[in-house]
Write a protein that binds this DNA or RNA. Structure first.
Length: 584
DNA sequence: GCCGTTTTCGGCCCGACTGTTTTCAGTCG
């Protein structure tokens, strides 16, 4: 058996979809894409589902039926897929690679292959530079230029970018557009509005009585490098920051329908449109329309109401049960932004942070936090100058001193303690006892196999002093995938040993991710949201974590550090006493 | 290829822009 992971399966299904699209097959490409999307966003591995529940389990994945179940089973059994190999043989073309270029789709790939023998990006570049594409019937000079520009962009582009790095730019552009005469609303839509962890481009929706002026202003912004498309009410540009931005301008009365349309997700929209169709209506960016009359268009809420649904927060518009919940008026009350009162992971210049404890505390207070926990690394992480038991005692004295100086604020004694490769901690019991909150994390042995890694973490969670598991899967979005860990087992252990799981807001981490948050809270495990700040500038990332918690359907009560500090510390204290009593 | 409080068969979301066309296919969101 071969443990083919979800990402790999999704990637294969996406590739099949492209090949089928290339052949002009109807409907099947969408089916494969839909299944791929479902699989890549599952928190449980399809392989584990198969081992546990067999083919029945796979078939139960939404969008997956008999045929795709068979294909997954074949992958698990042989690590190969005959169907895909046949497609690749018929068209020996790097289809995913080539269609990554803006403006090139499967049909053009087919044409370029058949007529010019283009199989990969290198062939494509050579053909374009030699002027061969412009001379093809059906294509021209412009197509060729766009391909060359697209190739250049692809080389420089970083692909999807962490949300936290793009949001400020999107907000800057939005705010500049807001000041245009005749413009009443500008909103960021798309996956940024849904607060996905990574972003491909910036979508902006505006309501204006003077669309021409607004579009002109947009295209002339200093952030813009190049104009890709322009129309009556939309413009599509490439920003100097190597990311594309799209602006759609509508009359005020259509702002809601436009916002709904361009917020997505795609599958949420498809579902809504199918529902509209059942009523004999159509839903598009201009409104919910019955024959020639508009039933609703001004606000999203009005449109949802026509379907007898509650308004659905953008963060959960992923066609993952939110439509059913909205129809039944049973949407969860998602944790409101601004609910997190304190930051529970902060590094200082005692280890690899850049600022003193007091500087971090004062900066956090300025942002409205009521408390922070100081969580410098411990000794096994030698490269950061990790603290030993004596250092922690010294740091405690320092914290006491600063606590007296800063009013209406509380610094909590904590640490980011290493889980050693055998699951033991690198701080002794006396050291653990001296801390108000004990947080643990993996920082070594990333290449351990899943069983070893999982057992190691579970062993650490079993320690009666442990309160929080930091960045449970260890992913770094721009650099490193998750380490091999069985998140279901971790969640079970967290529940059993009453340990909270961290949702780390650092833009590169966002760990736990949304689907794991949902899984954890469904299992009754508590979450903490914190920034992992290494300097004062990082403290601002809390709302990213709140957003991700919302994507995971978390309520305020699921997140421990929405509590005031006295209650929070009481909570951890009580757990510690209970656990120690059970052991003795 | 998937799916079903109308359906196990017959459907499957909708519209704009571009480039190369003389009315449209391809691509994108």
């Amino acid at each position: 058996m071969h443990k083919v992971n979800n990402q790999k399966i999704a990637s294969i299904f996406y590739e099949i979809a492209l090949y089928l699209e290339m052949e002009g097959v109807a409907f099947k490409p969408r089916a494969y894409e839909r299944a791929a999307q479902a699989i890549e966003s599952m928190s449980e591995e399809a392989y584990d589902i198969y081992k546990k529940d067999g083919e029945k389990g796979l078939d139960a994945i939404p969008g997956v039926g008999k045929s795709m179940t068979d294909k997954m089973v074949e992958l698990f059994k042989t690590n190969k897929l005959k169907y895909l190999n046949q497609l690749r043989k018929r068209y020996p073309v790097k289809i995913k690679e080539i269609t990554a270029i803006e403006g090139i789709g499967p049909k053009m790939v087919k044409d370029l292959y058949k007529k010019l023998g283009v199989k990969n990006l290198k062939d494509l570049e050579r053909a374009a530079k030699a002027g061969k594409i412009a001379s093809l019937p059906g294509h021209g000079k412009k197509t060729e230029e766009n391909i060359l520009k697209g190739l250049g962009f692809l080389k420089k582009s970083k692909g999807r970018v962490p949300l936290g790095y793009i949001l400020p730019l999107a907000e800057t552009v939005r705010d500049k557009l807001k000041k245009t005469p005749g413009t009443t609303d500008v909103e960021i839509a798309g996956s940024i509005r849904r607060r996905r962890a990574t972003i491909k481009d910036i979508d902006l929706i505006a309501a204006s009585s003077k669309p021409k002026e607004l579009l002109k202003k947009f295209m002339k912004l200093p952030e813009v490098a190049r104009i890709l498309e322009k129309g009556e009410n939309r413009a599509f540009v490439r920003l100097k920051e190597k990311i594309d931005a799209d602006l759609i301008v509508v009359p005020k009365k259509q702002f809601g329908s436009a916002l709904l349309h361009f917020t997505g997700s795609r599958f949420h929209n498809i579902r809504l449109r199918a529902m509209a169709k059942e009523h004999g209506w159509t839903l598009n960016e201009y409104g919910l329309i019955k024959k020639n009359t508009t039933l609703a268009s001004k606000t999203e809420k009005e449109i949802y109401a026509k379907f007898k649904m509650d308004w659905i927060p953008p963060e959960i518009r992923e066609e993952k049960g939110e439509i059913e919940a909205a129809l039944a008026h049973k949407l969860p009350k998602l944790i409101p932004y601004g609910s997190v009162q304190g930051d529970l992971q902060i590094q200082t210049n005692w280890t690899d942070g850049s600022y003193t404890i007091e500087e971090m505390a004062r900066a956090a207070k300025r942002l409205g936090r009521k408390y922070i926990a100081i969580t410098d690394h411990t000794k096994a992480l030698a490269m950061t100058g990790g603290l030993d038991e004596k250092d922690l005692a010294r740091q405690a004295k320092e914290i006491n001193k600063i606590n007296k100086k800063i009013k209406n604020f509380r610094i909590i004694k904590s640490a980011e303690i290493n889980i050693l490769s055998d699951g033991k901690l690198d701080i002794n019991e006396k050291g653990l006892k001296s801390l108000e909150i004990v947080s643990v994390a993996v920082h070594s042995g990333f290449s351990q196999n899943e069983r070893v890694m999982t057992n190691r973490i579970v062993k650490a969670l079993k320690n009666p002093y442990v309160n929080i598991l930091f960045h449970p899967t260890g992913r770094l979005l721009s650099r490193r995938p998750e380490y091999a860990v069985n998140i279901d087992t971790i969640i079970k252990a967290a529940k059993k040993f009453n340990v909270a799981l961290e949702l780390n807001c650092f833009p590169d981490r966002m760990d736990l991710k949304d689907t794991n948050v949902r899984k954890a809270i469904e299992a009754g495990v508590k979450i903490v949201i914190d920034t992992d700040a290494h300097n004062v500038d990082h403290l601002k990332y809390i709302p990213l974590g709140e957003a991700t918690a919302r994507r995971g359907w978390a309520k305020k009560t699921d997140v421990l550090n929405t509590m005031p500090v006295s209650k929070l510390l009481e909570h951890f204290k009580k757990i510690r006493i209970d656990k120690l009593r059970k052991i003795r």
